[in-house]
Every structure is written in C-alpha cells, then in structure tokens.
Simulated assay, not measured.
Amino acid sequence: MPYDLIDLRLFVAIAEAKNLTRGAERMHLAASSASHRMRLLEESLGTPLLIREPRGIQLTRAGEALLRHARQVLAQLEQMHADLTPYAKGVRGHVSLWANTHATHTFLPDSLSAFLKRHPQVSIALEEHTSPEVVMAVARGEVEVGVVAETVEGAEVELIPYRADRLVLIAPSDHPVAQRTSTPFVDVLDSPFVMLHSGSAIHTFTMNTAAALGRHLEVRIQVRSFEAVCRMVSAGVGIGLVPRSAVAEGSTRNPLTMVELEEAWAQRDLKVCVRKQALLSRFASDLVACLTKSV
C-alpha cells in the first residue's frame, strides 16, 4: 500500500508525545483531523496501532514496529535532502571516501584540500573506519574509494600506493623506553598508554594486537587527535603509538623520543582502495588520480 508521509510524520509525533492532541499540535492539525487520519491508517494496515486511553495513548506491537520503520524512513528522507541540497548550490559531484585513522589524521587533510581546490563543484563525505571495514565496504560496492593500511584476504579490490609511513612508539626523553632504539611491542605492554578515543581505527588495531599477544593494554587516557597524544606523552601521562608522520618537531613542550617497533605490522604503508579503477565515476576517478599522482 502507498504510505502518506504526512501520516507517518503525524504517527511519529503522536507516538513521541504519547498523546494524540499534542501530536496533532506539532503537525499543526486539529485533533479530530489527526484522529481521523490515524483511523484510516489503521484500517489500511488492517491492525490497530494506538491504544487510546483517558490520559493519552499507548502503542500496540504493530504500532511499535511502524514507529521504528517510520523513523528510519523519515531519517533516510532527511539524508536524501542533505545529499541533494549541494546540487542546488552548484555542487555537481559527490564522492564517498572511507579511510583508517592513520590516513584521516595525517595525510588526507592536505590531499583533500588540494583536490577540493581543483574541484570546487565536488563534495566529499569522509568517514573513519578500520582498514578491514574499508576494504569490505569497497568490495561490496558501498563506497567508491578507501584509504587503508592493510587488506582482507580474498577481497576483490584494487590497491594503489598512496603514502609510506610507520607506526612508532613515543615517550618522554627521560622514560626508560626512550633509552632504546627499537623494541618488540610485547616488551612495552606493562607501560600505561595514551590512546586515541575508543572506536577509532588505530585504537581498535592496537587493542586487538595486544589481545593477540595475550595481554591487556593499560590505557591511562584517551584523546581525540594524534597531536593530543603527543602532548599527553610529552607531559608524562604515558607512552603512545602513533604514525611517524604525526610527530611534529617542536610541537610539544618537552622533547619526545621515537622508538622503532620491531614488528612487520609497524610498517603502515597506506594504499588507495577501489573495486575497479575502470568503473569509477568521473569524480571518484579524479580523486584517486589526485591522491596517487605523487607516487
């Protein structure tokens, strides 16, 4: 059956207010008109949606299901409107880009700034995810372009070199770890760590790596950027694991020492990930060309 968007919005308003009259007021409708619309909706669905009580309404099981779906439909409509609005303002292209924490916080800001200056008619939706999540989203066709530091075995994607980098430990110059030039990761797991926030790709990677060694990482504090990690480490809060490119000289009050990790996974060469270059949209193809032109 066709669904009337006004009826869906009215139903959500009534359900959230738990009162037909107040819900009708939100939609600028008379209570009698709102009640009539709800009865017609119930008749068309063949099941009651509202339990009318003296002090308000309760939802039936069918009403709860409709509320869940109606919210999703209305949210998708709002997202559609947000996606289409730029076209009315002269933006004629849109590219979805997923990237891991490393790329998002280090190289991509400059790369995307350069791209958008050359292509003012394009907008980019950038989301941060773990490398495996990015690879699988690209392989499924959900995202056109990704930037990753590792791939997933069996995933049918193409990888193009983007930037070379390496994860390093950082510590205050007077910390015992700073006296080494290199170390296995397992040897520093007794130290408290400064980490990016839970849910960030590098946080997930680091915690999983420690768990694979049968250890639990002591996270003393979580912050929102690599710059904040460096500052906290400089202040003596703990040690950190960051890309070498994220450590800027002179950016902290106290000098930081970088210690090499001996594991192969510390080499974090970033790659642009696409399903098939030949099938990219024009603007996605332009973005890939811009990201990889200096390789």
Rank of each mutant, 00 (worst) to 15 (best):
S294A: 15
A30S: 15
R180T: 06
V73E: 14
S198N: 11
R275I: 08
F11W: 10
P172E: 06
S33P: 07
R253M: 11
S96N: 08
A88W: 11
A235M: 07
G146W: 09
E25I: 10
A114V: 14
A125E: 09
R22D: 15
A246K: 05
E42I: 03
H36T: 11
T104S: 15
A137Y: 07
G146P: 15
N100A: 14
H203K: 00
P255R: 02
H69Y: 03
V219A: 13
R55M: 09
W265K: 05
S225T: 15
T183I: 13
H36L: 14
V177M: 04
V148A: 02
T85M: 11
L256H: 02
L213V: 04
L108C: 08
V12H: 00
R166V: 11
L241D: 00
R231M: 08
A164P: 12
Q58P: 01
E260T: 01
V223T: 08
L97P: 05
G236M: 06
F185T: 01
Q179F: 05
I6R: 03
L66S: 07
L97H: 01
D110H: 07
T104W: 00
V288T: 11
R275V: 11
P255H: 06
V138A: 13
A125M: 13
S234E: 03
A289R: 12
V177R: 00
G250Q: 00
A24N: 07
M195R: 07
V229S: 03
R39K: 09
R282V: 11
A266Y: 08
A289G: 03
L67Y: 06
H119A: 04
R52C: 12
A228L: 04
A212F: 10
A31F: 06
E227R: 10
P54E: 12
R166P: 07
E16C: 10
M195P: 06
I124Q: 09
T257I: 12
A266M: 02
T21H: 06
V259Q: 02
H94P: 06
F107E: 05
V194I: 13
G146R: 10
A210V: 02
E262L: 13
V242I: 10
T206W: 01
D83P: 00
K18F: 04
R68Q: 13
A212R: 09
F226Y: 14
P161W: 03
V122W: 09
S200K: 02
Q79I: 12
I160Q: 07
C290S: 15
A137V: 02
L217D: 06
